[in-house]
Simulated assay, not measured.
Amino acid sequence: MNDLSVKKINKQIDEFTQSGKIPSELVFGYKTYAVLMQDDKFADQIMKGTENPIVRFYKKLKITLVTDKHYFQVK
């Protein structure tokens, strides 16, 4: 997952949607998330939750961080 980019994330979200499923969550490894936050295209689309400001969203999908260093999954 070291080569994960915003373009690849968007592609995986689209593929998940095209398979007939509705994505609700993005799961990132903490280092993967840190690298992505350095990309302005990704960081500009991150929004804080209205109910809980600690919760973050990307394209209205909740972001969950896990302890794996390099990890990404659409749920």
Rank of each mutant, 00 (worst) to 15 (best):
N10D: 09
Q12W: 07
I13T: 04
I13E: 01
I13W: 01
D14N: 11
D14L: 14
D14W: 09
E15Q: 13
E15C: 04
F16W: 09
S19K: 12
S19L: 10
S19G: 11
K21Q: 12
P23K: 03
S24A: 06
L26C: 06
L26Q: 00
V27H: 03
V27F: 06
V27E: 05
F28S: 01
G29P: 01
G29F: 03
K31A: 03
K31C: 05
K31N: 12
A34C: 10
V35L: 14
M37P: 00
Q38E: 15
Q38C: 13
Q38P: 05
Q38S: 13
Q38M: 14
D39C: 00
D39V: 01
D40M: 05
D40E: 10
K41T: 06
K41N: 07
K41Q: 07
F42Q: 04
F42A: 07
A43Y: 11
A43D: 10
D44C: 13
D44H: 14
Q45S: 15
Q45Y: 13
I46N: 01
M47Q: 11
G49L: 13
T50S: 13
T50N: 14
T50A: 13
E51N: 13
E51P: 05
N52A: 10
I54L: 05
V55F: 11
R56S: 01
R56E: 05
F57S: 02
F57C: 06
K59R: 14
K60L: 08
K60H: 10
K60E: 13
L61T: 02
